[in-house]
Design a protein around this nucleic acid. Structure first.
Length: 712
RNA sequence: GCGCUCUUAGCUCAGUGGUAGAGCGUUCGAUUCACAUUCGAAAGGUCGUAGGUUCAAUCCCUACAGGGCGCACCA
């Protein structure tokens, strides 16, 4: 019977907080002066929250509640992300189930349908955030497709354009044939695959010789414009400047030299196919002596199309075309067996680039009107490239990563950065302001501006007051997608780093160390768990033992353990209050009286000293972002010191006749309960506030804004 | 290929240059007492392997093995 029942009271407690207005930093009492800001990484509004969301909600809520209690003007700005490609993929699956396809729906209608879908999910997501106890300022909530956000995104686009950091062009992009869109480099995944390497002979009539090229893609031979060899390769010195004959269409193609060609790979001779390979495109662009125009032979649906190819290939899918091309080459005796049996190395393994969503093989295709952001060039009006701005901010310590090792990953990524293709051929997103295209921005281009865009668009002076923000807390998996882009674009657009600390959490795993995913069927819903065990238990299970940057393992058993802890808190509090003087109205007055009456024994003083030491240690952990340690320490103290030792040893004193001794015991228990509730509040906000509200107070204050120990 | 990281109790993980810690689990015992979502007690580790530095190494260095991650990619 005397058990804590979170389900009955949590929503009521949340309403109490909301009603107070204290989620809004402008409405906090006067003692709250210095701003402390966290911009919430806007969850994708395309489905219910999962445990990964619950982790970030808990971590950020802990930081915000802690700072609020410490007297900061704490702002946690919530948001929702339209999540362009991600949402469109989710929506397409829904369409598929209904027997429809996005390619049959007019663009404008598709946009409206996805918008309706997104807004429904947004509402669900907001309610779930509340369910998890998020103490964010709903009056400032933003959506990535809000008009004023779009306006700011366009301003940045214009600024980049004026600064010469944008260019538009025909470029080889990573094309996903299934999704009919290009993807950025970070949206690819790689898989080792066996791709037979074909050794193909090209005649060189002037020399009465042939040159052998190694390729995995014979079907693209009709699109060859040249053959390249390394300038230092003695085997081919005489070939440079001569013409070879394309074995599939008999066109003359020039043999050139370029140091990008690896002498030791294959035959040392590389066919240059600028329409279907990025590296080839780069080589092509630096050799104006290649007069030949490049023409694609594969279309956007992954089928063979174009002039100058054997008719047998026309209309075939890439893989079929490869087989057919191989057949033709073999029949014409074009394979060179010198390097591999029958001229084909069947055991060659390379990394295939795949779409990170559907896993289909990426086709490098040449696409017109693609917008790119220059990452390594100086803007016309500034001294530093986007990359250099970001590197400088992290090197100088203006931005710190927690854990620290992530700055190495960051620098490594920055060192290898390439120009960023921000055009996407999807309907769902912010339209690129360019009359020659229906493309939308890569969603990370707009969300890369989120910290300043969100603050600029809510209230007039919010940007002045709350920017730069204090902490960016997000998953370590999006450091390159998002964090790096926010740093670059934030510095570029505002001149200031968008945040001071980046706290990165890991990916939630199940007890078998597997990632949680719908397809594996091992997802745990934080909302279901909240309903079953209480939100506080879910929160604790996600925090204790979860060090920054490493993957937390979550199981129902663990959550159950913290449900038991909540119950322990509940009963210990009941015990303490049951044993207070009858009809006590004002616990603070009682405490003052007890302090004055000088009834404390040496043992009591020792216990209170330990309490103070524990509070100090907890505070130190909080300051150092060691929430895993603070929470564990509080758990241990409350259960095994306060409940098991201090409460137990107080029992005879509470029923004893010595009124002074009884008063001392009551006082000590009440002090410890008060302090531990305060310290536990950021972690377990519902139960602590719930108990606080039942304590004898003259003025019913909220625990949420109670002073943190050591705070004046 | 380049870089990062991990390896500590059955499981999940802390931790420190000086006799190894927590939670969960396990075993044994208790029970009208705030709480059985409880209490008490116990078992359990040559801190991945091999070297080195040191008076002293789980901790620092080197190599190796095995996991994880990031980046790049050669046709």
């Amino acid at each position: 019977m005397p058990q804590y029942e979170p389900q009955k009271t949590e929503s009521e407690i949340y309403r109490l907080w909301e009603k107070s207005g204290f989620f809004n930093p402008d409405k906090l009492p006067k003692r709250h002066k210095k701003p402390f800001t966290i911009i919430m990484p806007p969850p994708n509004a395309n489905g219910p929250l999962h445990l990964g969301h619950a982790i970030f909600v808990t971590l950020q809520d802990i930081m915000i509640r802690y700072k609020r209690m410490k007297g900061y003007k704490a702002l946690w700005l919530p948001g929702a992300d339209h999540a362009g490609f991600e949402t469109q993929v989710v929506f397409e699956k829904k369409l598929e189930k209904e027997g429809r396809s996005r390619f049959q729906i007019p663009r404008e209608q598709l946009y409206q349908e996805i918008m309706a879908f997104t807004l429904v999910n947004k509402k669900v997501m907001e309610n779930q955030l509340k369910r998890l106890g998020a103490s964010c300022d709903w009056s400032r909530e933003k959506f990535t497709l809000d008009e004023d956000i779009i306006k700011i995104v366009y301003q940045t686009f214009e600024k980049l354009k004026k600064d010469g950091l944008l260019y538009k062009g025909k470029r080889v992009v990573n094309w996903c044939v299934k999704h009919q869109t290009s993807l950025s480099d970070v949206e690819l995944k790689y898989e080792e695959r066996k791709s037979p390497l074909y050794y193909v002979k090209y005649d060189v009539p002037e020399l009465h010789l042939f040159i052998t090229v190694a390729t995995t893609r014979p079907e693209t031979i009709p699109a060859d414009v040249a053959i390249a060899v390394n300038p230092a390769d003695n085997r081919y010195k005489n070939f440079i400047g001569k013409y070879a004959v394309n074995p599939l269409n008999n066109e003359r193609i020039l043999i050139i030299s370029d140091k990008a060609v690896d002498k030791d790979f294959g035959t040392g001779a590389l066919k240059i196919t600028p329409d279907h390979d990025k590296a080839d495109e780069e080589i092509f662009n630096r050799h104006p002596e290649i007069k030949k125009e490049s023409k694609p032979v594969i279309n956007f649906f992954g089928k063979m199309e174009g002039a100058n190819m054997p008719v047998e290939l026309l209309g075939l899918k890439i893989f079929e075309a490869r087989q057919k091309a191989m057949e033709i080459l073999r029949n014409n005796n074009r394979f060179n067996a010198e390097f591999a049996p029958e001229g084909i190395d069947e055991n060659y393994i390379n990394n295939a680039a795949l779409c990170y969503k559907c896993g289909s093989q990426i086709e490098p295709l040449n696409l017109a009107n693609q917008w790119f952001v220059k990452m390594t060039e100086k803007p016309k009006t500034g001294k530093f490239s986007l990359r250099d701005l970001a590197i400088k901010a992290v090197k100088s310590g203006k931005i710190k990563f927690i854990p620290k090792r992530f700055d190495k990953i960051f620098f490594h990524w920055m060192a290898n950065i390439k120009d960023w293709n921000i055009s996407r051929q999807i309907a769902w997103g912010i339209k690129i302001p360019d009359k020659d295209t229906t493309d939308v921005f890569d969603t990370w281009f707009s969300s890369g501006q989120w910290p300043f865009a969100a603050l600029m668009s809510v209230k007039k002076d919010d940007f002045q007051k709350f920017y730069p923000t204090d902490v960016m807390e997000t998953g370590s998996d999006i450091i390159s997608f998002w964090v790096a882009r926010m740093i670059m674009l934030g510095l570029y657009a505002t001149g200031k780093a968008p945040f001071k600390t980046v706290y990165l959490h890991g990916l939630v795993r199940d007890t078998n160390k597997q990632k949680m995913s719908k397809s594996k069927g091992n997802v745990i819903s934080p909302i279901e768990m909240s309903e079953k065990y209480g939100t506080d238990a879910v929160r604790m299970s996600l925090i204790v033992g979860n060090t920054p940057g490493s993957d937390p393992v979550v199981s129902e058993d663990k959550i159950r353990g913290y449900r038991n802890f909540a119950n322990k808190i509940w009963n210990a509090a009941r015990f303490v209050m049951m044993n207070l003087p009858e009809n006590l109205q004002d616990m603070d007055a009682f405490a003052k009286k007890a302090e004055k009456s000088n009834v404390l024994k040496a043992e009591d003083k020792k216990v209170l000293k330990e309490l103070a030491a524990m509070a100090k240690k907890t505070t130190k952990d909080m300051e150092n972002f060691k929430f895993y340690s603070a929470s564990e320490c509080l758990y241990h103290y409350f259960w095994h010191i306060f409940a098991d030792k201090i409460i137990e040893s107080s029992k005879p004193r509470l029923i004893g006749k010595d009124t002074k001794d009884k008063l001392a015991a009551q006082y000590v228990l009440l002090e410890i309960l008060k302090k531990t509730l305060i310290l536990l509040h950021p972690f377990m906000p519902f139960i602590t506030e719930n108990i606080w509200q039942t304590m004898p107070q003259k003025n019913k204050n909220l625990l949420m804004i109670e002073r943190w120990p050591g705070q004046r």
